[in-house]
Design a protein around this nucleic acid. Structure first.
Lengths: 213, 213, 213, 213
DNA sequence: AATGAATGAGGTTTCATTCAT
DNA sequence: TATGAATGAAACCTCATTCAT
């Protein structure tokens, strides 16, 4: 493999980049382990093998490095994998693919999704961020539902916005309960069987929208 | 000096009872205002008009007084109102009544429900508590779904436990988004119209379980 | 000796008073030793034999405890001793008495006067305070000069305000140089001979205002 | 490798000289703006548009660059202008000229004079420096007074050293109050009228030494 | 010499908890 | 039990100084 490693770029910039990356990686680990509230800058720096002071060369505080961590997660969440696009013309297949992709992405980043949830309850700025994401998610689903209604493929009686709220909630919360709370308590070992959960959710979507008739 | 134990031991109890109550009430206010993490014992005592030291005569710490606050809320959440029982034989009506009751209770205690959510992300013990509640909620709904399936009133293909997980999630998260996040963003002013939300949720339940056929 | 030690006053208030006093006394020592800028809250608390945290039960910060120290000094500076009033009708004797009293008070609190000077260069609030004191001092001397001018006892050509500025400056700075800088460098051991300094200053006042003619 | 010391060593000197000058100029600005204590090496380097590390190529620390700044001021303070020498034989005219020159020089560098005052309260080395200057100033004035006394032009009763202390103090402190504290508080706008202040000071000198008789 | 990131000692402040009265 | 000051463990953040490039 050929890399541009030889390029000298700028003198000390190498250390800087390395340290910044080390801090973000360490922060991710510490946040996952201790939660946002209990995580200490000290620990993040230690974990990164970096002096405390160096932290402040790169981030203003806990908030900022958390944002950096979430930015990384963001990307991971946004790569739905090829399945979604390959779904072809069948609307049910599209939903099934989207649901499975969502669950898989959620499972991959479960700890950090839970974290964002926590941070949103504690920090005003992240509350806002999470709100915007939720809104975007709801809007997208509402659009999809309206499209199906217009095509005569979904229950016309439903208020698309409220249905989107409800079904989006079903998705996100189910994933949260399944992957963060660890297992569906009192039920089957859900996390072990992501496909069955995805199937059920898809069937519920389809039923709920009355796409079958 | 010798006193007769029977009578004079009570007088101080008046102060004690009063202070305890004042602390719980103050704690509720402070928790709602500042959230669990930021709430300080100091503030709770101040808000209650009680010396800091007195706090520890009644509670071991923040955790314990929070439990006391939640115990109060518990009762409010558990009084479903008469509607539910009066629903008679119609299963759809039962679901509709239960859903409305749930939303109303949630709305009444939205701040504290959000709080419990927050605390669960921060405190191991409350995580457990919340888990148990969630499990109970899921179990109850799973039982109901199975009953309907057995009666031929619900989609037999559905895994009752997973369906319960999904539909229960839909309920709790929708309520959270609507009443805690303030308004369904990008949609109609949901909180203003609890009845429409309840109707939509009920319709989705009914559709999802295919109770209409 | 009889004291009111027996008076119980309020329960724990005794400790509080004692600690506050200990902190102020300790602060005075630390400030005199290290100067305002280098003095550390830590050292003040240690020197007072009090926990760091207790400092903040009594003062908001370094600024505030410094103000408390200066308030004590204030009183000492304001007790001119009996000499001043006993001066009788002779204006020269009044000036002589006032000058001596000023020098003695200054010498007694030399370290802290120097300190105030330092703090004024560093802290906006104290700059203001010092300014007001200086203004009061100038105004008082300007009034005295005008009185003498009106009585035909002082050079009518002099601008009373500017003369006050000049002569007041002469007093305060001479005291500073003599008692703070330690000794009049290149001259006689001034601090050892406060009376000769007072005599010279008085003679200069009298000459400068032409009170002798 | 052996190099000829004469020529090739200079090329880099261009950067060096430029940076050193930039740092001194920046330091002056920062010191005037923030005072010695609050001024940060960081800010000086930033203000000079130079890397932090470069600072230490030229100076050992804040102390040293402050000395460099003061060395510049020194020169400005020491150029009395031609007026002084032109005063001719009249002693009063000499004093008047010297006083005006002093006030003008002080006003020109008021900020930095105040700064030196501040630094002297904080830093042992500069305390010493300031002391020496003061001593030199006092000694010069004491010599002048003795000369006048010997010539029968000044009050023989005065202790020349103490009189020098007093009158020198009058000059320096009046200038400080007028130009640093901003205005003679409670009096006329002194800084606006440097000539009247100079006249008054001169008249007070003349009177104080009884040069008129 | 210039660069600019790394280092880490150091001081402030907060607040849960204790404890003598 | 109430009181409220004392306690002291944390944790944060700053900034002078170093150092590899």
């Amino acid at each position: 493999m050929v890399t541009t490693d030889t390029a000298p770029s700028r003198p000390r910039r190498a250390d800087a980049t390395r340290n910044r990356a080390a801090l973000v990686a360490a922060a991710r680990r510490v946040f996952e382990r201790d939660g946002y509230v209990r995580a200490r800058i000290t620990d993040i720096a230690d974990e990164a093998g970096v002096a405390h002071g160096s932290f402040y060369s790169h981030f203003e505080g806990k908030q900022e490095i958390f944002a950096a961590v979430m930015a990384e997660v963001e990307e991971e969440m946004l790569h739905p994998g090829p399945a979604l696009t390959a779904a072809g013309g069948d609307p049910v297949a599209v939903i099934a693919a989207a649901n499975l992709a969502y669950l898989e992405a959620y499972r991959r980043n479960a700890r950090l999704m839970a974290l964002l949830e926590q941070v949103a309850t504690v920090d005003e700025d992240f509350r806002e961020l999470r709100l915007q994401r939720t809104a975007a998610f709801l809007a997208r689903n509402a659009r999809a539902i309206r499209r199906l209604q217009r095509a005569g493929l979904a229950d016309q009686e439903l208020d698309a916005d409220l249905a989107s709220l409800a079904l989006s909630s079903m998705m996100s919360r189910s994933a949260y309960v399944a992957f963060v709370l660890g297992r569906a308590p009192g039920g089957p070992g859900v996390p072990a069987d992501i496909d069955r959960l995805a199937d059920t959710l898809t069937r519920l979507w389809v039923n709920a929208l009355r796409m079958t008739e």
